[in-house]
């Protein structure tokens, strides 16, 4: 009968997923916590030299690329997330208010979501090519000199700017679609009421649209932060495994890249523990910023009514 617990049956239904999750999610979490306390863990021989709480983290911080990786990761996150959230908010409001061709624009704006990150990264790299790329051509039209964005000897700043353009471009589609569906859920009567009160468009946007959409903006911001902290494939797409413009290798290295870097050295004693420590540092950063985000938006998110 209804309230009866169907324990055995439930576990049977859960078993396939739970077995896989145990092997590939739960055990790895525990194992990462274990790896990170091993000193000089030699994976090939299965030996280690005692336990340590801090050593592996010290290796992470002492890694010659760590500061660069952390700087890049932070920069990517704190530029791309606010820019893409704001841009996609505007675009989705425009999209929602356009009377015709909504479906057409929606399809176009969605395209970046359905591409291969490597393929489109290569296209971006060529767009930013110094002599033969479109960006410098356009700059030329307005009388600016060509810039060496991604070519041999390109500066960190130029390369980072190109990367950011790509990252923002690639992250808009998802946000636009989510915001649009949120906007479509807002009851039209709020807007009618605002119009009856002769509210100006800009005010409607600030005082009605944004507050009513705020739970979604908050959710998207949090998930975008989490996603942006893991930036890596975008760098590979544009710059290859070199992680930077030719002659400036690893200029755009990120924290995730450090994890795989360490993992590639898995035979070297201590490398796996360093990988685990790096991943844990990444998690800690993510967690801190998620908590800060939650704290900040607590007073600004309106959960009642509006966007359902």
């Amino acid at each position: 009968m209804l309230e009866d617990k169907s324990n055995i049956k439930a576990w049977l239904y859960l078993a396939p997923a739970l077995i896989l999750l145990t092997i590939f999610i739960f055990y790895p979490i525990i194992n990462a916590l274990f790896l990170v306390i091993l000193s000089d863990y030699n994976y090939l021989q299965g030996t280690w030299q005692g336990f340590t709480l801090t050593d592996n983290f010290v290796y992470v911080f002492r890694n010659q690329n760590f500061i660069q990786a952390l700087t890049n990761t932070m920069l990517i996150t704190f530029v791309s997330v606010p820019v893409s959230v704001t841009l996609s908010l505007f675009v989705s409001v425009w999209l929602n208010s356009v009377a015709k061709s909504k479906g057409f624009f929606q399809t176009i704006f969605f395209l970046p979501y359905v591409t291969n990150a490597i393929a489109i990264g290569m296209a971006f790299a060529f767009l930013f090519n110094r002599n033969f790329g479109l960006i410098n051509t356009i700059l030329g039209w307005v009388g600016l000199n060509p810039v060496n964005w991604v070519g041999l000897g390109a500066t960190w700043g130029n390369a980072m700017f190109s990367l950011l353009v790509y990252v923002v471009w690639g992250s808009l589609a998802f946000k636009i679609m989510v915001f649009l569906s949120g906007l479509q859920n807002i009851d039209k009567q709020y807007y009618d009421a605002a119009r009856v009160d002769s509210t100006k468009k800009g005010r409607i946007f600030r005082r009605i649209t944004v507050p009513l959409l705020s739970p979604m903006i908050f959710y998207i911001t949090i998930t975008s932060f989490i996603g942006a902290f893991k930036a890596y494939t975008e760098v590979i797409g544009m710059f290859g495994e070199r992680l930077g413009p030719p002659g400036n290798d690893k200029a755009l290295i990120t924290v995730v890249a450090l994890v795989y870097d360490a993992l590639d050295r898995s035979g070297v004693p201590g490398a796996l523990s360093e990988a685990a420590a790096t991943a844990i540092v990444l998690f800690a950063i993510t967690l801190i910023f998620t908590l800060i985000n939650t704290r900040i938006s607590k007073n600004r998110v309106h959960y009642a009514g509006g966007a359902k």
Binding site: F24, P28, A32, K230, S266, A276, A279, L287
Partner: peptide, 19 residues
């Protein structure tokens, strides 16, 4: 399950590779 969704995949990747 939900609480693991925030953990970056890199933490799993290390051990999954060993597995």
């Amino acid at each position: 399950l939900i609480s693991t969704m925030m953990i970056p995949g890199e933490i799993f990747v290390i051990t999954n590779f060993l597995t």
